[in-house]
Amino acid sequence: MKKKALLIRLAAVALCVALGAVMMVVGRGHTIYLDNKTIEDYQGQEYKSFERVNITVPGEDEVIKLAKRERDMATCMGQSFHMTVEVIEKKGDEPRVEEIDLKLPYNMDGIIVNLPALLAGLPEEAWMTEFIPAPEPEDSSEEEPNIGDEFGMGEDLGMEGDAVA
């Protein structure tokens, strides 16, 4: 009987751990920065920005519209990202529609995706870079949270005897 109870408890713990692991994978959030910028020199070749790009991301209310040299962002939960890209390469060209699926690295919060390099079929290192936010200016007011003196006695705890004297 005791062995059975122990087995049930171990199974419950294992289930919780497994569920936690699944949640960590499916819930991992990423911010994808979509760039329509020229790559000037990748192995001696230039990949020019597009005239116009319209991107539809499932779950996002609005279509992302990028002109030349523009950047916008989308958010994504999980390790794969799907988008429908409508590209007008040069003025007067017919729009070309492509469905794109990306595998996202787990350890990156912000990922910059260069669309001209991606659509040219270059390897991942050419179109994917990590977005590292600029350090925020230090806010000294948040240096020390105001805690620990709920009775409002300040430094005078009345225990030194000087008030009595």
Partner: peptide
């Protein structure tokens, strides 16, 4: 801190709190 968003984040927080 681990950037787990949405309902998976809530479920994971519940599991971690146990």
């Amino acid at each position: 801190d681990w950037q787990i968003w949405g309902i998976p984040g809530v479920v994971l927080a519940m599991l971690l709190s146990i």
